[in-house]
Nucleic acid binder design. Structure first.
Lengths: 118, 118
DNA sequence: CTGAATCCTAAAGGATACTG
DNA sequence: CAGTATCCTTTAGGATTCAG
C-alpha cells in the first residue's frame, strides 16, 4: 500500500489551487495571448466577470507571482497586467489542460450519442 | 485580438471542472496507484473524507466515465472502483499537474525566504 | 479608470444518524 | 459494507454603491 495522500501535501492539488477561481484560467489565457492588458481591457474581454472578482483574482494571481501589476501614477489611473517570467511557465500546463479538456468534451459527447441509440 | 473566451467554451475550464471537487484528484491518484479499491479501502486511504463526499465524488467521476463501479451482489455488499480505460488517459495530465505544482510550491517557498532578507 | 466596501445568494462541503 | 437522508457551516461569487 502506498502512503496516504492528503490534499495539503498533494502537488496536483497545489497546481489546481493556483488555478482555482472561476475566471482565473480565462484571465491567464488572455494575458498569454496578448501579453499586457489594462484592467478595463481585461474587463471588456471577459464581459460577465464582475469588477470585484476581476480585482480579487488578479490580486491572488499576483500573490502567486504569476502576474505582475504595474501602476502608472497618473489621473485617471492606468494599471497594466502581464505575466511574470515565472508566470509564463504555466503555458505548457494550460496547453495540456486545454488538450485534455477538448478531448474530454468530445468523449462525453460521444457517450451521449451512444446512449440515445438504446 | 483573439476571439473572446467564455468559461463555457474554454477547454481548460472543461478539464478543471472534471477535477473540481476537494478530494477528486486524491481519489484518482489512489486508483492510478493501486488499480482497484473497495469503498472502504478508499476511505481508509483518505481518512479525512466523509462517507458522503466519497460517495458523491465517486458518483461524479463515474458520470464522467473516468472510473467504473462494480457491485458484487452479496451480503455484506462489496463494491470495487477502478479507472476505466478512458480514465487512464488522465495520468499524463495528473503528472503534468504534479510536476508543475511541486515546482510551484518550491518557487513560493523561495520567494518567502527572499522576503525575510528584507 | 481602478478599484474598495458592504451585503446577499448559491454552492460546496462537513456532522451525524440511519439502513438494506 | 456501502451507502442515504437530513441538517448545518463555510466559502465562492454576484450586485450594488461609493471613492481617489
Amino acid at each position: 500500500m502506498k502512503e496516504k495522500i492528503n490534499p495539503e501535501q498533494c502537488q496536483v492539488v497545489s497546481s489546481l489551487n493556483t488555478l482555482l477561481g472561476k475566471w482565473k484560467p480565462i484571465i491567464l489565457q488572455h494575458l498569454l495571448a496578448e501579453g499586457t492588458l489594462r484592467f478595463n481591457e481585461l474587463k471588456k474581454r471577459i464581459p460577465d466577470i464582475t469588477q470585484r472578482m476581476l480585482t480579487l483574482h488578479l490580486r491572488e494571481l499576483e500573490a502567486q507571482d504569476l502576474i505582475k501589476r504595474v501602476v502608472y501614477p497618473q489621473v485617471p489611473p492606468k494599471v497594466e497586467y502581464s505575466l511574470t517570467e515565472y508566470g509564463k511557465t504555466i503555458e505548457p500546463l494550460m496547453n495540456t489542460l486545454h488538450d485534455w479538456g477538448k478531448n474530454h468534451l468530445q468523449h462525453i459527447e460521444n457517450l451521449k450519442k451512444l446512449d440515445k441509440l438504446d
